[in-house]
Design a protein around this nucleic acid. Structure first.
Lengths: 334, 334
DNA sequence: AACTATGATGGAATCGTTTCCATGAACGGT
DNA sequence: ACCGTTCATGGAAACGATTCCATCATAGTT
């Protein structure tokens, strides 16, 4: 701005101003041994010089950067936005910054972001792994070799890395019980990458509730919103026998609602709908959507607590899901 | 994991293995002067030792941390999630990480987060300032003194800091023209902190279109979702003469839809509704909402480009808004 | 008075990379 | 053969904070 750049005040300046050694200033500012008189002089000098320590020297000496690295698939997905909010809340209470990266569920991008975190020696990482156990193991091996404190969230990645997840299986089961209780037998599951546990739970729930499985009723969409819409529309068009739909995420739920409207499929008269995740707009739909609510903020908060924790850590933390019944499900009419 | 922690490979190891000096390794890896033969030997040694430079030494030597700091009011607000997505997209194309902080529109939290960015010597910052020009000036003074490259986004903060904003005034005017064109005279504006420019534009639009202003029709909500709902419900209850409502943000729009439903106010028969920001669920509502669309991702992307830019920068970048007509507005019936 | 223990203090090494600047080799011209 | 220029090269300083360890002063005990 105005005039030549002034040199930033350093610990040497404070030491000189207080008439002590730099080790003494460092001890005073970080709680080490110092007499009351020395402490007073140092703090007065620091205040007078408006001294703010630089993290750069500290980071080099300690061989690590503070803060948390967070890797998520999509920040515009309301669920991941709220999960991020949970991480930020917890991190803030510890005074730790959060560096966010979006992987797009692409393993190459994930590997690149992991490399960047290692380069910064950011040793606490929370991630929604883009791949399941075997490939995630490989992608995350450099991070573990570099001794990063990794916590997976929302999905399990490798068995030896702690994870914080929602009890998806219970959520799916509860939803299926509800729909089957309403008489539905032809229930579709709209899913996408990263939801293999929900797919497994769907199949197992059908078996345990005595409903014949129909493999054609598990429809996979790709990562984009357009693909989700196409999958939903395709299902509603090609399978008019379907009377209930479980959407594995809120982007899929959104696609299902739009496709139903476009095809004049009435919810819940023609098709009952349950979607995963309670997002604010679930209530705004007409009818308001019944959802399997997963505690996004809590998942994030707990993952951050685990990542910031020293010493022994639990292997997996599972948080409960909850069926929130609104008005998008009705009895089977055909 | 297994065995004692191995020391990380450093540039000295590579130098020794290649039989050169560390300055030579540094030059080879960062594009300086080196013979072809030397270059080959250094790169082979680096590959063989699986050497990855540490940013910690570089940061200290250069007196700065790479990456961008981003301060926004609320990551769970769909508009800010998409703005963040835009910042992340641009940053990724430059290979720069992004550290995210949530201010909650609280000046104290903002000041604290600014301090943390200065401590890390993170010298490129994008922020939605929590306050208007005068107070933002004061809060951001330390950042400017520390010569951080600051760009404000979505809101203007101080005149001497570049900003990337949407043309809110034009957006409000277009919306008001549309509503007045439909015959509405009693138009309410539901707003919250940080939207003073939209409020001003609302008042000016009424004046320029010859509609008498009614100060009771500008209703301020506080920062929370609950407060937004209370404000919307209060307005609809206390002012049955209102036939149109402009919501200044998507959280306010959501509150208006919920309150209308709760009070059996039909949209658009009883009250027409336009809200700011096109969010994915605007289309999901019944009826789908007419919106003033602001390009959230573009705002973020352009702000990141500006923040990463060297040399001379434009003072303000204004991106256009667009009225997206769906089905939540109708002619005045009373 | 001498000895021992304890706490405060400070000089300097350390962390890893960048970059300055001196040095030497090689090449071209006279 | 000598001189001047250019390019490659490497030793070491620098960046700022932390932390180790030697030193000294003080207090208590014998």
């Amino acid at each position: 701005m105005n005039g030549p750049m002034q040199r930033r005040t350093t610990i040497k300046d404070v030491a000189e101003a207080a008439g002590v050694g730099v080790a003494t200033v460092s001890r005073v500012l970080s709680g080490g041994s110092a007499s009351a008189q020395t402490r007073e002089r140092v703090l007065a000098a620091a205040a007078r010089l408006d001294y703010h320590p630089s993290a750069l020297g500290r980071n080099l000496r300690r061989q690590r950067t503070g803060g948390i690295g967070l890797l998520i698939p999509d920040i515009t997905d309301a669920f991941y936005a709220r999960l991020t909010d949970g991480v930020l809340s917890c991190a803030r209470s510890y005074g730790e910054p959060v560096t966010v990266g979006v992987t797009g569920d692409d393993p190459e991008r994930e590997a690149e972001l992991i490399g960047a975190l290692i380069e910064q020696s950011m040793d606490r990482v929370i991630a929604v792994p883009s791949r399941d156990e075997e490939t995630a193991g490989e992608i995350w091996a450099p991070a573990l070799r570099a001794r990063l404190n990794v916590v997976f969230v929302d999905r399990r990645g490798r068995p030896d890395v702690p994870s914080v997840v929602a009890d998806d299986a219970a959520g799916v089961l509860t939803a299926m019980e509800y729909l089957i209780g309403l008489g539905h037998k032809k229930i579709a599951f709209l899913t996408r990458h990263g939801q293999s546990q929900r797919v497994t739970a769907f199949t197992e729930a059908l078996a345990s509730l005595g409903v014949p499985a129909d493999r054609g009723l598990v429809v996979h969409a790709r990562a984009s919103r357009d693909s989700a819409y196409a999958a939903a529309a395709g299902l509603l068009q090609n399978r008019p026998d379907v009377t209930a739909l479980l959407a594995g995420g809120n982007v899929l739920g959104e696609a299902a609602v739009l496709a139903a409207r476009e095809l004049d499929v009435r919810i819940p008269k023609d098709v009952s709908l349950i979607m995963f995740d309670d997002v604010p707009w679930a209530e705004l739909c007409s009818p308001p959507l019944t959802v399997v609510a997963r505690p996004a903020q809590d998942l994030g908060y707990r993952a951050a607590e685990l990542a910031l924790r020293q010493g022994r850590r639990p292997r997996t933390v599972a948080l409960p899901t909850e069926l929130v019944v609104r008005a998008s499900c009705g009895p089977r009419l055909r």
